[in-house]
């Protein structure tokens, strides 16, 4: 059976809301080591993975791997009226009844308990095996505060429209974000910051070779994910899917894998 408990619902709620905006369905895969969520877009450009390690839960029991396809958009809608400080329990029974129960319980005296039962659904093409590529496989890695990356995405998207593309170019000590709109182009230039000046919020660039790649801004502009994490790590390579990683805690992260578009 599967039984997981988080004392504060905030993290799980925020993640479901952040992803429910972009993806209608997701695949939840539980194992002894943790809970993994995968969602993909139908055009095969973006794959999102959330990893919550078993240690991130206050209680984690999973004696057999379980795969659940769920309606993410429906879950996001259902959870919007629950409280952030509720205790959340996720439970699926041994009889494989094809439903999972999410219980939200008020922390004071448990005087109100909501049971959400979600039916499993068939989702083609997920879950996928996602290897951890070593950093050396990427041509460039940029680390910057989410509080800096989020306004950059907002500026780029306000310049264009829903189908705007962004070109990210990394040079030795700088990263450029360029978006093309109907009226022209916008370029945002970010220099590597000295860690001495702003030790808590550096922009760091590790570059093996210059790289310039084009992405759909729609999926890059994951503002709700940015609120879950202080830092975003952008790993770029012309040979691998780019990774936008938001580390939530030491034990959990959201990764956006994005295929660069052809020029």
């Amino acid at each position: 059976m599967l039984e997981l408990r988080l004392v504060q619902a905030t993290l799980f709620k925020n993640v479901v809301e952040a992803l429910g905006d972009l993806f209608s369905t997701a695949h939840f895969n539980s194992s002894r080591t943790g809970l993994e969520l995968q969602a993909k877009d139908n055009s095969r450009v973006t794959l999102i993975m959330l990893l919550l390690r078993a240690e991130a839960f206050d209680h984690y029991l999973c004696d057999r791997g379980l795969s659940m396809g769920l309606n993410l958009a429906g879950m996001a809608k259902a959870f919007c009226c629950t409280n952030n400080d509720d205790i959340i329990t996720i439970k699926a029974e041994e009889d494989w009844s094809d439903t999972v129960t999410f219980t939200f319980e008020s922390p004071e005296d448990g005087d109100e308990i909501s049971y959400f039962h979600f039916d499993f659904m068939v989702i083609n093409g997920v879950p996928l095996e996602i290897p951890e590529y070593p950093e050396s496989e990427y041509q460039a890695i940029v680390r910057m505060p989410s509080a800096k990356f989020m306004p950059i995405c907002n500026k780029l998207s306000s310049f264009g429209d829903r189908d705007t593309v962004v070109i990210i170019s990394v040079d030795k000590e700088s990263v450029d974000f360029l978006s093309r709109g109907k009226t022209g182009t916008l370029t945002i230039f970010c220099r590597e910051t000295q860690t001495v000046d702003k030790p808590k919020e550096p922009t760091l660039i590790e570059m093996k070779e210059k790289v310039s790649l084009m992405f759909d801004l729609r999926y890059m502009n994951s503002s709700k994910a940015s609120t879950l994490s202080d830092q975003v790590t952008i790993s770029l390579s012309s040979k691998l899917p780019a990774v936008f990683e938001y580390k939530i805690t030491e034990m959990s992260c959201i990764r956006y894998y994005m295929l660069p578009r052809n020029e």
Binding site: R44, V45, I130, P241, Y257, L259
Partner: peptide, 14 residues
């Protein structure tokens, strides 16, 4: 093995 394929096969079919 509940996994259905690799991330690279997902993107290659794009």
């Amino acid at each position: 093995g509940t996994k259905q394929g690799s991330i690279m096969s997902f993107f290659k079919k794009a």
